[in-house]
Amino acid sequence: MRVALAEDGALFREGLLMLLQAAGHEVVGSVADGDALVDLLAGEDADVAILDIRMPPEPDGGLVTAERLRELHPDMGLLFLSHYAESHYLMRILEIGTEAVGYRLKEKVGSVEVLTDTLGRIAAGEIVIEPVLAKRLVERPRGDRKEAVDTLSPRELDVLRLMAEGRSNNGIAAQLFVTPKAVEKHIANIFSKLGLQEDGSEHHRRVLAVLTYLRSQQERR
């Protein structure tokens, strides 16, 4: 796989670069800030760009750089690495894109197997979320949302499944041959059945709904 890397900590950047090479990936460039990454990728193609969230341009250059990259290269996967796994950053990442994105702790991509698996899933279009964070989101505030997925009607499950694939309301409507208004109504029912209160933004609840669903699927396998 072709990978580009931007990280301002020289020690970690060098370590990750060596690990990527040891895993047999082609590193098209390794730079220390977001602007240099955008410049690099203007001339080089990559399957996935790896970005440190907290790097220049300050304060969270990884996020602003990723927005530019998504605009310039919509098919390029984005892997965010951070020292913190916090839902605040996850929500901001999912505002940039809900396909081919990943958010992981720096020290959790420290083996060839995990690194390659994470990059592969992102390149295949999946959302990869640090497991400790996904678990916390789905289990809070009460650990009963998973069972709640079983109370959804078949049509609501269809809608939730398409949400999990990263589709918009209009996309879901087209797929199911219903009106966008009907999709909104299904989504409102899903939020209510999953106990997602109105204190969060629509986007926040959408993500929680998707995470709940993803987790219930994982446990059925």
């Binding site: 020690l11 370590g15 690990l19 895993a23 720096k106 020290e107 420290g110």
Partner: peptide
């Protein structure tokens, strides 16, 4: 930051 940098380095050693 120093501790997190050790993890990929150990990953290289494992290979």
């Amino acid at each position: 930051l120093r501790i997190s940098a050790l993890v990929p380095q150990l990953g290289v050693v494992r290979t």
